[in-house]
Computed example of a mutant assay.
Amino acid sequence: MRVFLTLARAASLGRAGQVLKMDPATVGRRIARLEARLGQRLFQRSHQGYALTEDGLRLLPHVEAAQAHLRAAETPSDSGSGLSGQIRLGAPDGCANYLLPQVIANICAEHPALEVQIVALPRVFNLSRREADMAIGVSAPQAGRLSVQKITEYHLHFAAARDYLDRHDPITRVADLRGHQLVGYIPDMIFDSELDYLARLDLPAAQMTSNSVPVQLNLLRQGGGLGVVHDFALPHAPELQRVLVKAFSLTRAFYLIRHADDRRNTRLGQFADALRRGMCAQVRQLEGAVLQAELPAQAISENP
């Protein structure tokens, strides 16, 4: 069962072997033996790796539940309510890079026996295939056997490097952006309509694009132009300055997405509560730091 669960998450004999400290061929033999014993094909083999079949997907939650019960039984009675074991969390790369590190570090400091894996991918996670134990999304899924909870709202604005702004005329309205280079997402790689920030603006297509939020941020830091940036990412890029703050502002939200079968999993529930509290506090802190940093400049402009 342990080999099955590891291969389901790793999707590769080689990666599963590394986790299990087994030869990949041994992993393959164990899975073949399990399939023969159950009389079911649990994995579909292809050049892309190992993917769970329908039989494998049906078996997976039972194995995960057995693992959770075993971990609970192995936990010493004097360990209090501390979390332990491994939890894999999927998240968009902007959230994973600029918001989650401090949140997860704080949770793990409080629960030393807990291992958290952050999988940062610019796409939607497939929880039905157990790519992660839970995922953070920028919209609430409307299909699937999922449990969805809103975590917190966050804000986005146009921003550019200060030296870029110094080399150009002041930008006072959205129409002024037509004379500037824009940074944004690769259009056909926008995996959620909530990320199509420029869709409703009458502006030329972005000249510099990436499916990665950190790449977009670094393009802006190098003076590449203007782009829409998460306010919570700005403290990580002090070279950037928000523009058109009153003329253009977006509000989006993060959602915690879990498989419906996990709603009664106490361990995952405790982690989810800690994650929500931490993310709410971190967004408030980082966005507040941006506002505080802009106060002196605003005071000067209002009182010349």
Rank of each mutant, 00 (worst) to 15 (best):
R258K: 10
L34Q: 11
I118C: 05
G223L: 01
F271W: 08
Y50V: 00
R45H: 12
I300Q: 12
D166Q: 14
V245G: 03
V103W: 12
R221V: 11
R37S: 10
A206H: 06
L286D: 09
Q117D: 12
L286Y: 06
L182E: 10
P101K: 03
I190Y: 14
L198M: 09
Y154G: 01
D188V: 00
L195C: 07
V3T: 14
D78V: 05
G85F: 14
K246R: 12
E35M: 03
L195G: 06
L89D: 03
A297H: 08
G227R: 10
G288P: 03
K21C: 06
A289T: 09
Y98V: 03
P170Y: 04
D78S: 13
Q48G: 00
A25Q: 13
V174A: 10
T53L: 08
A299G: 02
P187A: 11
Y164W: 15
V27D: 12
R123E: 15
H180I: 01
D23W: 09
D196A: 11
S147H: 12
L57D: 06
R29A: 11
R267P: 02
A233V: 03
Q181M: 12
T26R: 15
A25L: 14
A272P: 05
L13D: 11
H62Q: 11
L20Q: 09
R45A: 12
H111F: 13
A51I: 00
L201V: 03
A253K: 04
P238I: 02
D262L: 05
F232K: 01
Y255F: 15
V124N: 07
A72T: 06
A140W: 08
S79G: 02
E35Q: 10
N97Q: 15
L240V: 00
L250V: 07
H230L: 04
L177E: 09
E115K: 05
Q270V: 01
L182Q: 11
G80F: 04
Q67L: 15
T75K: 14
G227N: 09
G278H: 10
T251S: 14
S12R: 01
A72Q: 14
E74V: 02
Q40N: 02
F43N: 04
A161C: 05
P24Q: 09
L203K: 08
P112E: 07
R37K: 10
A36I: 00
E64D: 05
R9V: 00
S301I: 02
H236R: 03
A72W: 11
V103R: 06
A161N: 04
Q18D: 15
R178P: 01
R167V: 00
H155L: 07
D176R: 07
L198Q: 06
R71H: 09
S77T: 04
G90S: 06
N106V: 06
Q216N: 09
R123A: 13
F158H: 05
R37Y: 08
V183G: 05
T251R: 15
T26S: 14
R30G: 01
M1Q: 10
R200P: 00
Q285M: 11
L146V: 08
P304K: 02
A253I: 04
L59P: 06
L165Y: 08
E287Q: 15
T251F: 04
A73R: 07
L7Y: 06
P101I: 03
I87W: 12
V243T: 05
R41E: 10
R221L: 08
T209F: 02
P24E: 13
V245Q: 13
A272R: 05
